[in-house]
């Protein structure tokens, strides 16, 4: 079981949360202008990352807020937690962003 730190409530068991898939997927400005392939790409296609992965979680049995988690999909290590609207810390590779 994962222990996930909610940005508001602190660390809680995974059973209190629901998973929301890959984070930072931006809805296209003008869906009408897209081809079917581009629209399907937005709707369905996700990176199947092994390693650091930015994803959304919601604290459904707690404060019911959505937030972002950067998690290593291979080790389940939680690298970072940040609120909606905040820019992700680090460079997305699991490091601290330092060169």
């Amino acid at each position: 079981m994962l222990s996930i730190p909610c940005p508001w409530c602190g660390p809680r068991d995974e059973t209190e949360y629901s998973y929301g898939g890959e984070a930072h997927i931006v809805r296209p400005e003008d869906p009408q202008a897209l081809s079917d392939r581009e629209w399907a790409d937005y709707l369905f296609m996700r990176a199947n990352t092994k390693g650091a992965h930015r994803e959304r979680w919601v604290h459904s049995h707690g404060c019911r807020r959505w937030f972002n988690v950067e998690r290593n999909t291979a080790t389940n290590e939680i690298i970072a937690v940040y609120k909606m609207g905040e820019s992700p810390p680090g460079d997305g590779t699991g490091g601290d962003g330092a060169p």
């Binding site: 409530c9 809680r12 059973t15 049995h61 707690g62 404060c63």
Partner: peptide
């Protein structure tokens, strides 16, 4: 705190 008791909210 909001959490669960025996899996109930």
């Amino acid at each position: 705190a909001q959490s669960e008791i025996a899996r109930a909210h």
